[in-house]
């Protein structure tokens, strides 16, 4: 039988070496300038390898050099960090569309932003504080997921971690945890709408535990994309009498006025339970994609709480 491929390599879709192995990667560079700081960063330099084997099994490996190169314009100093960390390493097996199991280090299946975290797939250079500071971005454990049997448009995840991170050189917000349990669901509606939420708990033995409730909704219609995500958490530390509540949310709108050009605006809110630490951030951005896997972005941020107003620009490629 004659086999033909779309081409062994397509930009943004990796290089298919064999049926069981596709390799690729991504790179992103960022420039940031505020009143008191200016820097250039090669933020991500990552390698991907994945494939399918057997009837319904697959694997994924992602190695990443985080902040591979930094240049500080104020101090005229540069820094490199090339040794890669394991960002993802997991095995997947699908028993049916209703039950699949993923074991290993993976992205925590919470909301929309967290599942598409790399620069080239986003429409802004920056990530909202919602996604950076409120829950562990990665899970080293088991995720059982699929479509529910009673609703064709409803998906679920039941995820659990009962160990430290596989490679804690790459975790967010210094939430170095050793337990995490949660449940999330997402439902597709007509008219381009979808909505869902997550409920979970993570802890560091003998240090703290945090419970969270997260909600998300998105509408994609023609040239417009609208996303809102919010999370509220209760953190309990050792010897602490009362739980400390934190909240974060963002709302983002994108207008793709030409197939390769978008205008983006985002409003963010974050508080850590302290009335003096309630920050609001407004962002206005522009995104240009000469081809979809190549992204050029520019944004300006206004911060209410700090003198951190800044310009950010980035160039990123998925290959």
């Amino acid at each position: 039988m004659v086999w033909a491929a779309e081409g062994n390599y397509q930009l943004g879709q990796g290089f298919k070496l064999a049926d069981w192995l596709t390799v690729g990667g991504y790179i992103s560079t960022e420039y940031k300038k505020s009143d008191d700081h200016e820097e250039f960063v090669v933020d991500d330099l990552a390698f991907l390898a994945y494939g399918e084997f057997g009837d319904s099994s697959s694997f994924m490996l992602e190695l990443e050099s985080v902040d591979a190169f930094e240049f500080d314009f104020d101090r005229h100093e540069s820094r490199t960090n090339l040794p890669p960390a394991i960002e993802r390493l997991y095995f997947d097996h699908g028993f049916s569309d209703h039950i699949s199991v993923r074991v290993g280090k993976q992205i925590t299946p919470i909301g929309y932003w967290n599942l598409q975290p790399i620069n080239v797939l986003r429409e802004t250079t920056s990530n909202p504080r919602y996604s950076r500071e409120m829950f562990p971005k990665f899970l080293t454990g088991v995720d059982i997921y699929g479509y529910t049997t009673f609703d064709d448009n409803l998906t679920y995840h039941i995820y659990m971690q009962s160990t430290g991170d596989l490679d804690d050189a790459y975790i967010n917000i210094n939430i170095d945890i050793d337990k995490h349990y949660g449940f999330s669901a997402n439902k597709q509606f007509s008219g381009g709408w979808e909505a869902g939420g997550s409920l979970g708990r993570f802890e560091k033995d003998g240090d703290f535990s945090t419970r969270y409730l997260q909600l998300n909704a998105r509408r994609v219609t023609g040239a417009y994309t609208f996303v809102i995500e919010a999370i509220s958490s209760l953190k309990k530390g050792p010897g602490q009498l009362a739980d400390r509540r934190s909240n974060a949310a963002y709302i983002q709108g994108e207008y793709r006025y030409k197939p390769r050009h978008s205008i983006i605006s985002r409003l963010e809110y974050r508080d850590d339970g302290n009335s003096t630490n309630r920050e609001r951030i407004a962002i206005l951005g522009y995104s240009f994609r000469p081809v979809y896997p190549v992204s050029l972005k520019l944004e300006y941020q206004w911060h209410t709480l700090s003198d951190d107003n800044q310009l950010q620009a980035s160039f990123s490629v998925l290959f």
């Binding site: 943004g12 690729g24 991504y26 991907l48 994945y50 494939g51 694997f59 997947d92 896997p293 998925l318």
Partner: peptide
Amino acid sequence: WTASHFKG
């Protein structure tokens, strides 16, 4: 399919 490439 670009987003899917990142998902494996």
